[in-house]
Nucleic acid binder design. Structure first.
Lengths: 345, 345
DNA sequence: TTGTAGGCGTTATCAC
DNA sequence: GTGATAACGCCTACAA
C-alpha cells in the first residue's frame, strides 16, 4: 500500500532528471559511472521497482510468450513446458500458460486472453478436435509469430515442430511384424488432428507393405486413457480371433490394456505383443517392460521456444523451415526384458 | 505492424469521446444500449484490441498471479498447476509460471522477475534447500499475498496449504507394523524443508510407539529419484540384517527400489513390504501394486488459487487460517492385490 | 448520458 | 553527459 517509488522519486532525491535515472538504470553508455552508481544505490535504498507496464506501454512489447496446451498434467506436456520455461527464462521472457482441456471453445477463450495480454508470440499444441485455426489469424495478421508443436496445423506462416508420427506408426507396426505378429491391432486416438491420424496411417502402410490387412475388427479409436485401455482389453478378450500384436498410440492406454489382459492370464508378449507410444515412465515399470516410441518432450519445448524467440528477434519472417522434425526412437524393451528375466532365474 | 486501433480511433469514427467508448466497452451502466452497441460493433469492425498494459498502468493491478515451483514436470506439480489454472482462469486471472529447478538461486531470480511483473499475488512451493524466505519480504511488505503450498514456510502473513506429512509418515510406518514388519527402514528426502523432515519424524514416532528403534542403519536420505531407488536396493541387498518393511517418501524411488529387489529375487511384500508416497500412476502398474499415500494435487492447486484470490479481493488480511490441512489417504493395495492374484490363478 | 482533462511510469527524441 | 518534453492507451473525477 505504501506508495510505489518511481524514477521521478530517485531523480528528485539526486537532483537529476527522470531521463537520466532511466538511462542509468538501464546501463546506457552515455551515463557516467559515478552517476550510474548513485542512481542504482538510491534505487535500492528507496525500494524502487521497475514498472514493466509503463515500459511495455511505451515499448509496445511485453517480453512474454503465451503457451496453449491441451492439458498441463501429462508427462510429455510438463516436460515440454519445462523446456520452454528454461529457454524463455534465460532470454528474459516470461511465459503465460493456459490449457484448453481439449475443448476448442476454451481454446478460443485462451487465445483471446493471450491476445489481449499482448504476448509477443505463441507456442501452441492444439486441442484434439480443433479443426481450424481461424482464431489464430488475429496473431498471424499482425505478424505475431505462432509456433505449433506436437498437435500442429499446417499454415504457411506457422512453423511446426513435430516428430514423424507416420514413420513412427509404421515402425511400431513393422516392429510387431518382425517379432512374428500377423494379426496386428491398433488402438488409436482422436482422428480429427494429424497426430493420431498419421500414426494410424503409418500403421496401415506397414501392414500393407507386409501383405497384411488392417481390418476394421482390428481397430479401436478412443481417448487413450488408462481406463479405456482396460475396456479395450475386455473387447480383445471377447474376440474370436484375437490379435497377436497391438500397437497403442500411447503408453497409458497400452498399459491399462496389458494389465487387464495379464489379469486374465494372457501371456505378454508371447500371446499378444505390445508397442506403445511416449516412453512414459510407467513403460519401465510394467512387466514385461513396454516397447514404445520415445519422443523428446523437453527438447521439443526447448526447440519451440528457441524458434519462437528467433522469430521475434530477427525479422526473417519467411525464412524458416515450415516443419521441423525431431527424431523419435523405438525403444525395444524385449531384449532387455529377456536379459532381466534370465537374471532372476 | 499495422497500427493498433485504440479507443480514440473508435471515438473518432463515431463522433464520440474516448471516455464514452471506454465505458461502452466495459458495459458501464450509464451508457445507452444503442450507443454501446455501436461502440462494440465498431470495435470489432476495426479490429480493436484492449490494451491491458495501459489499463494495468492506470489501475495499478495486473490480474496476474505468479507461480513458483521446484519443477513443472512431476505428476503432483502438473496436477496442482492444472488446478490453479482452472480457478484463476475462471476468475479472469492469468498465471505466470516459473520453476526453480530446486535451486535457491534461480528461485530468487524468479521472485524478482515476478516482482517486477507486478503479479497481484504469489503461489509458491519452495526449492528443497531454501531455508529462509527473506526474498519474499518485498511482497509481504507491500501486502501482496503470498500463499505457500506443499513445500511451505511458516510466516505469520502467509497461509500454508499442506497435508499432514507427520501423520502420513506415522501412518505409513504404522501400516507396515500392522502388517507384521519389525525392521522398518525409511528412505527419505532432503531434510532442509519441512515436508520430508515431517514424514521422517512421523515414521520415527510410530516406531517409538511400537517399541521399535529407528536406527541409523535403517535410514537412507536421497533426492528420491527412481535411480536412487535402485541404489537403495543395492544397499539393502548388501545388508546383513535386511529390513522387512520400507517406507519410502515418494513412489518413484520406492518403485525403482522394488524393481531392483525383485530382479534379485526378493519377494515383495512377503520378505520386504513397501509403502510409498504420492499415489503416482506407476503405483498401480508395479506388481504387486504399491501401497502409498494419496495426496490430492489438483485439489491443492484449486484451493491455493481460491485462497489467493480471496485474499486479493477481500482485505481481510489477517483473517485466515495460518495452515490449511488437506486430507491424505493411505491407499492399501495389499488386499486388492491379493484379490487380483487370486483372480489370475 | 456524454465530454474534458489529467495522470499512471517509462523511454525516445531532440536540445544543450 | 544530462535535461525537457511528448507519447504510449486507458480510466475516472468532475463538469456539462
Amino acid at each position: 500500500m505504501g506508495k510505489e517509488i518511481t524514477i521521478y522519486d530517485i531523480a528528485t532525491k539526486l537532483n537529476l532528471s527522470a531521463a537520466t535515472v532511466s538511462r542509468g538504470l538501464k546501463g546506457h553508455p552515455s551515463i557516467s559511472a559515478s552517476t550510474r552508481k548513485r542512481i542504482v544505490d538510491t534505487a535500492r535504498e528507496l525500494g524502487y521497482r521497475f514498472n514493466s507496464f509503463a515500459s511495455n506501454l511505451r515499448l509496445q512489447r511485453t517480453n512474454t510468450i503465451g503457451i496453449i496446451v491441451p492439458r498441463l498434467n501429462s508427462n510429455f506436456m510438463s516436460d515440454a513446458i519445462a523446456g520452454m520455461e528454461k529457454v524463455a527464462n534465460k532470454a528474459g521472457y516470461k511465459i503465460i500458460i493456459s490449457q484448453s482441456l481439449e475443448s476448442t471453445i476454451k481454446e478460443t477463450e485462451n487465445i483471446s486472453t493471450l491476445f489481449n495480454a499482448r504476448v509477443d508470440g505463441l507456442l501452441v499444441s492444439l486441442a484434439s478436435d480443433t479443426s481450424s485455426i481461424s482464431e489464430f489469424e488475429q496473431f498471424i495478421n499482425r505478424n505475431i509469430p505462432v509456433v505449433f508443436f506436437d498437435r500442429v496445423f499446417n499454415h504457411p506462416k506457422c512453423p511446426n515442430i513435430v516428430i514423424d508420427n507416420y514413420r513412427a506408426g509404421y515402425e511400431a507396426a513393422d516392429h510387431l511384424f518382425q517379432k512374428g505378429c500377423r494379426r496386428i491391432m491398433h488402438i488409436g486416438g482422436n482422428q480429427t488432428g494429424k497426430v493420431y491420424r498419421e500414426r494410424f496411417e503409418g500403421y496401415q502402410k506397414a501392414l500393407r507393405d507386409h501383405g497384411l490387412i488392417a481390418s476394421e475388427d482390428l481397430l479401436i479409436i478412443s481417448q487413450l486413457s488408462f481406463e479405456e485401455g482396460t475396456s479395450a482389453a475386455v473387447q480383445i478378450l471377447a474376440m474370436n480371433e484375437k490379435p497377436d500384436g497391438v500397437f497403442v498410440a500411447n503408453d497409458a492406454c497400452a498399459i491399462g490394456c496389458m494389465l487387464e489382459l495379464k489379469k486374465h492370464g494372457v501371456k505378454i508378449p508371447e500371446e499378444i505383443a505390445f508397442v506403445g507410444f511416449n516412453n512414459d515412465p510407467m513403460a519401465l515399470v510394467i512387466e514385461p517392460n513396454l516397447t514404445t516410441i520415445d519422443y523428446p518432450g523437453e527438447e521439443m519445448g526447448e526447440l519451440g521456444a528457441t524458434l519462437l524467440l528467433s522469430l521475434l528477434n530477427n525479422n526473417n519472417d519467411d525464412n524458416f523451415e515450415q516443419t521441423l522434425l525431431l527424431p523419435h526412437k523405438l525403444m525395444d524393451r524385449q531384449s532387455s526384458q529377456k536379459a532381466a528375466s534370465l537374471e532372476i532365474k
